[in-house]
């Protein structure tokens, strides 16, 4: 993996890939895609980084502990967002019933808790994908 062009191109493109992943996550409720697809894109940017620059550098960016924490946090975030309904005295995962302003249809902030939940799911998916990749790669050695 000592390819100059590949490394330069990756250095140029990968940040945008990562940001695009977050774009897809945040626009999940008004456009195709969503938190799973966006999370995969975010995860893929790191996976591509690790394949091009080597596993060690990838590991240095995201250590196993960080991945474990983000994985747990992403899902816990979902749980916390679900609990908002319970604190307001309505069922789990309630959105409009919990008194959250839904905004106008078609706008970015128009889905109440859904986009926040999507952020948690996206983080979870991204870190899971990276963990799977690292696990498989390190098993090979």
């Amino acid at each position: 993996m000592r390819d100059f062009i590949l490394k330069r191109v990756a250095a140029l493109i990968l940040p945008f890939v990562c940001v695009y992943g977050f774009y897809v996550i945040f626009h999940g409720h008004i456009s195709p895609g969503g938190s799973f697809a966006g999370g995969i894109i975010v995860g893929l940017s790191f996976i591509a980084f690790s394949t091009i620059y080597g596993i060690e550098k990838g590991r240095a960016k995201l250590s196993e502990d960080v991945l474990t924490w983000t994985e747990s946090f992403g899902t816990l975030w979902y749980g916390i967002m679900g609990m908002v309904g319970i604190f307001k005295g309505v069922p789990f995962l309630a959105n409009k019933l919990a008194g959250i302003d839904l905004g106008l249809p078609g706008e970015l902030f128009s889905s109440g808790l859904i986009s926040y939940i999507g952020l948690g799911v996206g983080i979870r998916v991204a870190s899971t994908m990276i963990t799977i990749f690292f696990t498989l790669m390190e098993d090979e050695e």
């Binding site: 474990t68 924490w69 994985e71 747990s72 899902t75 816990l76 749980g79």
Partner: peptide, 11 residues
């Protein structure tokens, strides 16, 4: 389910 997800942090 949620406790399960948090457990790896306390490994």
């Amino acid at each position: 389910l949620f406790i399960a997800i948090v457990l790896p942090v306390f490994a």
